[in-house]
């Protein structure tokens, strides 16, 4: 059965729900990370093969059918790098926001931004 796929779908939904339902920006970011992780899990599951071994030539039998598909793993390494970079930029933005406005609660933040009346940036 395809139970692992249901786990990935469940995580996707959980991530999206967290991003939509929570008013705190850090929690939204956590939701985003869960959402991305679910996609990585999904990709890796497409490479799984029952009874197959890791794709290193010389360790196992010679025919290709005996190995797991290495391509999704390679793709997901790149996707993880993208994810790390996105999270890094997001955390940097949140740090600056907190330093400037003293809150990460969405409603309070909107209020404080409106009342701060910054000079327009050229």
């Amino acid at each position: 059965m395809n139970y692992p796929y249901w786990v990935a779908i469940g995580l996707l939904m959980l991530g999206l729900y967290t991003m939509v339902a929570h008013r705190n920006l850090t929690k939204k970011l956590i939701g985003m990370t869960i959402f991305q992780t679910a996609i990585i899990l999904f990709f890796l599951m497409t490479s799984v093969k029952r009874g197959a071994t890791i794709p290193i030539v010389g360790l196992g039998p010679a025919e290709a059918a005996a190995y797991m598909n290495p391509l999704p793993h390679a793709l997901m390494l790149t996707a993880i790098v993208v994810m790390v970079a996105t999270s890094g930029v997001a955390l940097a933005i949140l740090t600056r926001l907190y330093a400037r406005y003293g809150t990460l609660e969405e409603d309070l933040l909107a209020e404080r931004i409106a009342s701060a009346a910054d000079e327009p940036v050229p």
Binding site: L12, A90, V121
Partner: peptide
Amino acid sequence: ASAGGPALAAAFRYLLLGTVGASFYLL
């Protein structure tokens, strides 16, 4: 985000939606 102030909140919103868009594409 480099503008600071209200641009930080706008950039964060852009980041969340942009990442969701890219993740949908990847899926």
